[in-house]
Design a protein around this nucleic acid. Structure first.
Length: 228
DNA sequence: ATCCTGAGTC
DNA sequence: GACTCTGGAT
C-alpha cells in the first residue's frame, strides 16, 4: 500500500529529473529485435561498449534471428567482444534466437503480443534473461507498462530514503508501480532519467550533490553536503 | 559468494 | 592501477 504522499513524491521526482535532463530517447525506433539484443548485451556493460558490439552485428547483417542461429557461437562471441563477458553473452543471444525460432518461427510480434505476465514468465525461462532484462524487453520492445529496476534505481531510491521494506527486485518494482500511473511513456522516460541521473550526478562514489535537482528532499545528500 | 572479462575514466 | 558499467548463472 503506497501513500498519496509517496505518490506525489515519485511524480515530483520525475518532473524534476525531466526538467533537469529532458527526454532521454531510450531505444527509439531501433526495432524490437535490436532492442532485445541491446538489453542482453548491456548487462553489466556500459552503453558505449554495447553500441560497438551492435554495430559489428549490424554491419554483417546479424541483427536477425535466423542469421544469428546460423553463425558459430565462437564467431558471435568475437563480434560482440566489446560488450564484456562476450562468451556468456554469445550463449545468451543464441538461447534467445533459438527460443524465438522453435516456439514462434521467428515471429517476434507473436511473442511480444502476449499478455505481460505470461510473457515475463516465458522470458525468464530463457537462459540469460533475468528480471531486469525481461522487464527491459517488456517495456522497451513490447511496450508494456512495466517499471524496470536496476542498480541506479535502487541506489537513488535508497539515498532518497525511499527504499522499500524488503530489498529484492520485486519490492522496488511494486513500490514504483503502485505509486505511479501505469503509462508506458512515463515508465520508459522515468527509468531512463533515473539512469542518466545515476551516471551523471547520483554517482556510486562521490555523488555530485551540489548540482543535484533532488538535494532538498534527499537525506543522504544532506549528510554528504555537510561533509563537504 | 564467485565467475564472466572490454573499454573508458580517474 | 583501481573503478565502474543499463546482470545473470552457478
Amino acid at each position: 500500500m503506497v501513500s498519496e504522499f509517496l505518490k506525489d513524491k515519485l511524480l515530483n521526482i520525475y518532473h524534476r529529473l525531466y526538467g533537469r535532463y529532458g527526454p532521454q530517447h531510450w531505444w527509439p525506433g531501433d526495432g524490437a529485435f535490436e532492442v532485445i539484443m541491446g538489453a542482453i548485451l548491456t548487462q553489466s556493460a556500459s552503453w558505449a561498449n554495447v553500441e560497438a558490439a551492435l554495430a559489428n552485428l549490424k554491419a554483417r547483417g546479424l541483427l536477425d534471428p535466423a542469421a544469428l542461429r546460423a553463425i558459430a557461437q565462437e564467431e558471435l562471441a568475437h563480434l560482440i567482444r566489446p560488450s564484456v563477458y562476450f562468451n556468456v553473452k554469445a550463449r545468451k543471444v543464441k538461447a534467445f534466437v533459438q527460443h524465438l525460432g522453435e516456439q514462434y518461427d521467428d515471429d517476434l510480434e507473436a511473442l511480444l503480443g502476449k499478455d505481460a505476465q505470461p510473457l515475463r514468465q516465458e522470458l525468464l525461462s530463457i537462459f540469460g534473461i533475468g528480471e531486469e532484462t525481461a522487464d527491459d524487453i517488456l517495456l522497451y520492445a513490447a511496450n508494456k507498462p512495466i517499471f524496470v529496476i536496476d542498480a541506479y534505481t535502487r541506489r537513488i531510491l535508497d539515498r532518497l530514503g525511499l527504499a522499500p521494506a524488503q530489498n529484492g527486485y520485486s519490492a522496488y518494482q511494486l513500490l514504483l508501480m503502485e505509486g505511479l500511473p501505469h503509462d508506458v511513456r512515463l515508465f520508459n522516460e522515468y527509468h531512463a532519467l533515473l539512469d542518466r541521473h545515476g551516471v551523471e550526478t547520483c554517482r556510486k562514489r562521490e555523488p555530485l550533490c551540489g548540482e543535484c535537482c533532488l538535494l532538498d528532499m534527499c537525506p543522504a545528500g544532506a549528510r554528504l553536503s555537510l561533509q563537504g
